[in-house]
Each structure stands twice: as C-alpha cells, then as structure tokens.
Design a protein around this nucleic acid. Sequence first.
DNA 1: TTGGTCAATGACCATGCGGTCAATATACAA
DNA 2: TTGTATATTGACCGCATGGTCATTGACCAA
Lengths: 223, 223
Amino acid sequence: MKHPHGTEAFDTLPHPKKERIYQAAVSEFAERGFGKASMNRLVEAAGISKGSLFVYFKSKSGLFDAIIDLAVNRIKEHLREVRQSTADDPFSLRISALLRSGFRFVDQYPKLAKIYFELLQSNDAPKSLQKMVQTLNWQSTRFIASFIEDGIKREELDSEIDVVRTAFLINALFEKLLRSYYSEHLAPEAGLYAADAINIDNWVQSTVNFATFGVSRFSKGEF
Amino acid sequence: MKHPHGTEAFDTLPHPKKERIYQAAVSEFAERGFGKASMNRLVEAAGISKGSLFVYFKSKSGLFDAIIDLAVNRIKEHLREVRQSTADDPFSLRISALLRSGFRFVDQYPKLAKIYFELLQSNDAPKSLQKMVQTLNWQSTRFIASFIEDGIKREELDSEIDVVRTAFLINALFEKLLRSYYSEHLAPEAGLYAADAINIDNWVQSTVNFATFGVSRFSKGEF
DNA sequence: TTGGTCAATGACCATGCGGTCAATATACAA
DNA sequence: TTGTATATTGACCGCATGGTCATTGACCAA
C-alpha cells in the first residue's frame, strides 16, 4: 500500500500526472490552508477534471491526508539523516545540526513547511488528523529527548535533567525560530531579522547557546 | 472613539445587547476561526437579526477587528499589571510572574486566548491585520526585552547578552508552553501534561530555570 | 388617533463550495 | 470496423456563505 489515501486508480496513474496533481495540491493547501483550499482551483492548476480528482481521492480530506503524509515523511527523512550522521557527535553539535537541518528544510520545501506548521496547531485541519497532530508534537519532543538521553549516557549532561521537559522547551525554541524564519523567508521586508539579514549560522549559535546556558551564558554563576 | 470598529449605531446600543453581541462573536471566532466563522450562526446566538449586525459593523472583518481589539487590550492590561507589580523584583521573579500571568489569562479568558494564539500565526486572518500580527509578535518580544534590560541595569544579567535575541527565545518558550496549556486545558485526556496533572507552578519553575541556565542547569560548568 | 421617524428585520441575492453522475472519449480485442 | 470496457469529463446538485434593502413595527409629538 504505497498510497494509503489515494485510490488504486490514482496509484496506477502515469508518474507525471501524479506529480502534477501532488504539486497542485501542495500549492493550494500551502497557500490557502485546508479550509479555504478550493478543489475547483486545484483541479484547474493540475489540468485535470474535477470528476477525475474525486475518483483518485474520495474527498478533500482524503487528498489532504495524502499531502500530510508526504510532508511528514519528507520531514522524517530529514530527521533520520540528522540522527544517523551525528550519531557520534556531542549533544550541542547534534542539536545544532538538527536546527540547521530545519532551516534547510524550510528553504527546500517551503510549501511543505507551511503545511506542517499550520497542521501543528490549526483547528482548520479535518478532525481525522487531530490525533496525528498530537502525535507529531509528541514525536518532535521525543526526538530531541533521545538526543538528551544520549548526552546523559555519555555523561555530557547531568542525569538529573528532566528529559521530557527539557526536550519540550528546546523544541519550542526550534519551532518558533523556524516558523519565524519561514515568515521572513517569504516577506523579509519587516520583522525580527530585518536588521540582521537572516544570518542562519549566527542564529543557530545563539539559540544553541541559550539552550545550553540560558541567560546566564556570560554570567559568573551567581544566580 | 471608544469603538473604532463598530459604527455609532453600535456605540449607542444598550449595554446588555452590546455584551450579547460581543460574547456571541468571541465564541464564534474562537470556535471556528475567522474563515469558518458564520455570521448566520453568530447572529442567531446573539439573538439579533443579520440586518442589524451589518448596521452595527460594516463587515465580517470589521467585527473581527473589534474582537481582536478587545483581546489585545485585555492582554495588555495583564502585561501592564505584571510590569508594575514586579517593577522592583529581580529578573527571574519577573519572568516567573509573567509566565504565571499567562497561565492565568488562559484560564480566565480561554476564548480570547485562542483567538490571540490563532491570530499570532494564522493566514486565516483578514489582510488588514497582517501588519498588526507582526507588531504583536514584536511587542511581546520587546516586553521581555525590557525586563532583560532592567536586569542588566541592576547588574543581575551580563551586559554582553544579546537582548533582543534572548527575549525572542524566552518568548518562544512562553508562547509554546501557554499554547500547549491551552490545548490540554480543553482536552486533557492525552498529551504532554497527562502524566503530570498540569502542575503549573512546577512548569513555571522548570521553564524559568531552563531560561536561566539551559541544559547546564545541574552541570558543573564543563561545557 | 394620527403621522412621522428610524431601528430592526429576514427574505433574498450572487457567489462559491464539495461532491456526483450521465454522457463521452479512449483503448484495445475480435 | 465493430463492440466492449474503462478513464475522463464538466454540467449540475444542494447547501452555506457574506452582504443588502424594502418592509415592518415601536415609539412619541401633536
């Protein structure tokens, strides 16, 4: 079952046609969100008839599910790559790499990034996905948690750390940063990074530093 | 001009009627978001006719603007209160108070909180508000930045700190935490806090600790 | 009781939606 | 060339939307 959301009819479609449909769907959902996305517009962009679309996918939500699958799988590939390629690195390097990989993802797949960001907290998504949203939130926290656990095993991090909470908080930093990057990415004229010219490396460093030492970064430890 | 978005007709309405309209609007926008909110439903909930509503407010967006005003002002009241009542406290106490005030706000005005959360990043909002969204994001960062600046003046915090970035990151922590609290608040059965029974004080402490010392909280400073 | 004022009303409008299905185009076997 | 099976189509459906406006009815002065 390669396409659990599309029908078999869609499965057996010639590749370029499938691709056109996916592209049109990704663009439409990214641009308008699930609620405002129009199947009429989508169908026109894809160059197929509305009748066909509803043969290939049994409903708007069904198509959206397929697109979400696509986005989530692409993200998971990225995460897997980070996990493997940094398996032997110390904690701070690993989360740097993770954050950098996030920036890369937003650059490479801005539309998927947008769909993912909106999914993470929109009430706009069809109800069938609300469990998945919780799962995704939990998984990204778990992913960071595994880095922390590795760090503890290697005695880089203190074993007293509350792993899940810390992971949750680091995840919060990364998510907001990437979200803001996405916004600036598309509308760089006014915002947080304007003065900064969006220096990614710089931000990665600042953020990882903050995650490591907090505001006491430069302090002499008198808190 | 007390009600810059409602017409004079709305201004001169008897108070209970105004209140009913506001309440219905807040509920409808909170529950469905701007895009899916229905004026028909809203009007029925408020117990007035559709014609009247469009005399009081010249459009759906106009009404939404008024509700946003309401939410933003309520939030600003809370922030002002925190700023004043903690004016002489040290930095860590002030941000603790700020975060706690956030939890309180979510408890007291869950619908306004939801509207605000969605506004902060939704593309669902009418275009007239997109500038305001940027402004709001910037203001919450600035608010925290002012606490940091005070902390530096008192020599609690090192003057080398990048004030804006640090404020941005702390804001990220708070925002995500409150957002999650809101979700759990309404659907506590499954999520990050389930095992925890949503111990607010505990989370405030963890978060402020993290913001202060990062993951090195318990470490001996060997990074 | 009348006449005039004006807030309130809800039937109505054009538009666009997700989704359907009888009709048609296409492909291939005989 | 014909017959049949399948893939594709787009006109059409019921519905809900944001917004309008001729009509209504409550109120008060004369």
